[in-house]
């Protein structure tokens, strides 16, 4: 284990809005090639956590060490430059471009050609874009307008975009939300496969427990802003507190009184 480098190290991360603790003292590590799931009920603080890791939001306190750099206060684009790919709960793609162009833009940015006013983008990194699309199984759709894609295909496209900067870490917020069950499993299988091949660390949030337990190496459970459990799928599955949260409202109430007791 110690041979595998730590990609992401989070310590004491906290954020509150007007007295409400959205995230409270969260700490965890993520290693290269590891697939880590962040789960918890709605309002548990998953998205806030993600936004802070991604630079869209600044923590009140705590440290985020990403690939050896302290990233607190950095903008998303700076964090991306460190080698972080990101997908969104609701896909964010460029609707007026073709599928291939969507990936090409990311490659242009990766190649630091953003202020190139003269050359033709169509010719820029065409093959590389094609390879990435092939990788996510979208090669056949390369010339389709992005605006015409089905939702599952948009998710795949996002994955291809997220891979354009040869990331060491993927942050995926609800990667399978809004997809049909079969598509979900396919997408996560694909993600896991790519992550293992390229030794990319993956942190994802997810509502679908089947997806989580099938693909995650390790699971973090967040409730009301605090980390209440952490461990392998088996460990988490057996954790009574987690069961309580996912089994009913009455038990959630009990769990609240034991906040912070887990982990």
């Amino acid at each position: 284990m110690s041979m595998v480098p730590t990609l992401l190290s989070v310590q004491g991360l906290s954020k509150s809005y007007g007295g409400v603790h959205a995230v409270r003292n969260v700490s965890f590590d993520l290693r290269a090639g590891e697939i880590l799931a962040l789960i918890g009920p709605n309002g548990a603080g998953k998205s806030t956590c993600f936004d802070m890791l991604n630079g869209q939001n600044t923590p009140d306190s705590g440290r985020i060490n990403l690939l050896g750099e302290d990233t607190v206060g950095r903008k998303p684009r700076a964090i991306w430059r460190l080698g972080v790919g990101r997908t969104f709960q609701i896909t964010a793609t460029f609707a007026t471009m073709t599928v291939r162009e969507n990936v090409q833009v990311a490659l242009v940015s990766y190649g630091r050609q953003l202020f190139n006013l003269w050359s033709s983008t169509a010719a820029y990194a065409r093959e590389e874009a094609g390879r990435l699309l092939d990788l996510v199984g979208m090669g056949a759709y390369a010339e389709r307008p992005c605006g015409e894609l089905a939702y599952g295909d948009l998710k795949r496209l996002e994955l291809a975009i997220a891979l354009a900067n040869q990331p060491r870490l993927l942050l995926m917020d609800e990667p399978t939300a809004g997809m049909a069950p079969r598509e979900r499993i396919e997408l996560m299988r694909l993600t896991a496969q790519i992550a293992r091949e390229k030794s990319i660390g993956v942190l994802f949030t997810e509502h679908d427990m089947d997806v989580v337990f099938e693909h995650a190496d390790r699971i973090l459970v967040l409730n009301r802003g605090s980390l209440i459990a952490e461990g392998s799928p088996e460990q988490v599955r057996g954790n009574p507190q987690v069961r309580a949260i996912y089994l009913g409202e009455g038990l959630v109430y009990d769990a609240r009184h034991r906040e912070g007791a887990g982990a």
């Binding site: 998303p76 684009r77 964010a92 460029f94 833009v105 990311a106 953003l114 900067n165």
Partner: peptide
């Protein structure tokens, strides 16, 4: 959102 997330200022 997406452009910021692929390093575009």
């Amino acid at each position: 959102l997406r452009s910021e997330a692929i390093g575009i200022n």
